[in-house]
Write a protein that binds this DNA or RNA. Sequence first.
DNA 1: GATGCTGAGGCAAACGTTTGCGTGGATCGT
DNA 2: ACGATCCACGCAAACGTTTGCCTCAGCATC
Lengths: 333, 333
Amino acid sequence: MKSKRVSITDIAKELQISPSTVSRALNDTGKISEPRKKEILDLAKKMGYRPNPFAKGLVQNKTKTIGLLIPEFTHHFYSRMLEGIESVTSKAGYQLIICTSNEKQKQEIKACQTFLNSRVDGVLATVCKKNEKVDHLQEIINSDIQLVFMDRQCEELEASHVISNDFDGAFQAVEYLIKNRYKRTAHIKGPKNLSTTFNRLMGYKESLKKANLSVESELILESDDPYLLKENLKNLLMEKSIDSLFAYSDYLAYDAYQVAFEIGLKIPQDLAIIGFADEPISQYISPSLSTVNQKPFEMGAQAAQILLNQIKNSETPCEYISLQTELMIRDSI
Amino acid sequence: MKSKRVSITDIAKELQISPSTVSRALNDTGKISEPRKKEILDLAKKMGYRPNPFAKGLVQNKTKTIGLLIPEFTHHFYSRMLEGIESVTSKAGYQLIICTSNEKQKQEIKACQTFLNSRVDGVLATVCKKNEKVDHLQEIINSDIQLVFMDRQCEELEASHVISNDFDGAFQAVEYLIKNRYKRTAHIKGPKNLSTTFNRLMGYKESLKKANLSVESELILESDDPYLLKENLKNLLMEKSIDSLFAYSDYLAYDAYQVAFEIGLKIPQDLAIIGFADEPISQYISPSLSTVNQKPFEMGAQAAQILLNQIKNSETPCEYISLQTELMIRDSI
DNA sequence: GATGCTGAGGCAAACGTTTGCGTGGATCGT
DNA sequence: ACGATCCACGCAAACGTTTGCCTCAGCATC
């Protein structure tokens, strides 16, 4: 079976016709009679012809590949997003080139180089936490490669994005706490520099304001240093000055669980907690964690669809999509 | 910035030399003087030259891409494996083309077509549960594409694999139960047709035999129908005929948790449980689940490395690697 | 019957690289 | 000083496809 690859010219020779005719038949690009076409297609199938993507790419300068840049894959949110992306791109005959940044800018820059080198038609990206510069992403745009951001937006750059409505998700979560007569709600912030961090914080603040509650800066905790976070949280809890907590992520909520258990508090009696992202773990831990579901599959699928549209027609204007979230109430409140 | 792509001939013209010399300089493939080389490299950098992968692929017939076939990504095991793979391939300058089968043979076949069409240099695959035929994988091999299996082996085909030592992992888990004086241990089997299912079952059986305990078929439960599984398990537990359980996977162990809680049993007092895979959830659920860690990162990394070796030299003999597992003892025993 | 039109298909260039072979000049050994 | 060797580089073919232009036969029109 180690037969040589069969090319368009092989078919042409076999049929005593020119390669151009074969090409036209295979691509169904007019200028060919029906019987001829059928004859060619049949033989091509019989000979097991597969188009050579290099030759095609060389002349057409289209790669039918999309670069995917993701911080990491072990969070359910991202792996589910990947599945959404893949469901769209595979149907459209596009391939994915995957690079992970591990939340490091250096790796993100390298990924962008990879995308440029492999001449991808477009890029789907979730930028990493620690981006100070965005030159590498700007270069993607400058090279006429379509770019769509997911989950985290990047205001410095003019590109489409599909994100969660973080503000509203946070707003609803805190509103729910207030409605259930919790009096003082703390917030654990996310990583600096992320749009998601900012928006969820704003949602928290606005929700308090709407209920005529004051926003107290000592109830807003930084999370960049995990040790410091736990210390600060422990102090707040020991003073019994809070009765509820809205965390930037489920993982930060798990940290809060640990601290609460350590000092003998019960969830939700002594402390109600709501997280963000709806990791599958959250259903299994005890008590199960209330959280905000973000629809990562839809996020990936929509971002991919927008990217494909932009690739098809580069004049397509940018789209800015904000997906509604869903509050999942479980046992932690 | 919408400048045209700069090619090797552009550089050659600029320097009044031939394209071949430029090519040799860029690839550092001998036959070139040092000053010339430096001159060319400098100009190439200055002009922002990027090699055209199509032209290169066309003449060399190497794609520097690897196809990755995975059942799904939302299990931590697979996403972690992906990270292991990516860590190796990205260093070697290879790109990944990712396809998911969603455990469906139809999608797996489609993925193989994709791999053949895009002329990948090699394929890393974890086959899906429901493979009755392996023709599509055989075709990969027939087309001279290197193939390495991960996690699940495929005995019908002659190809390298990197798997867990499922037998030993299961053996140790059950041995641990026996040593801790549990008398009757049930086993929940995995999906039919998988090598992992068979090997873990064998490990369970051998461990019992070694301890001079009898293997009772009514203690071995099928898991293909989740409802039936729960019913059967409930019956076993109500009769109090078992005091411990070794499950094919963590997820099946979680099912056992549910059933046990439903009928008011306590873990581990009334029922000790050990799972398999060490999903991160298992640390967080309560009581935390003892399980068998499989080192998915290493599995991916090693499989990728073997594949790269085989691509480099297609005469490399097949390798069969079985990674040692690690028993993680937590609170469920 | 000369002219124009149309549809089917061929010709050849082009895409950007690599690479075997050839060549001229320099260097070496004797 | 002369042939052998070697080095640095050029030439041109090759990889498989697409595509603009050309050709030619058949047909309709006047």
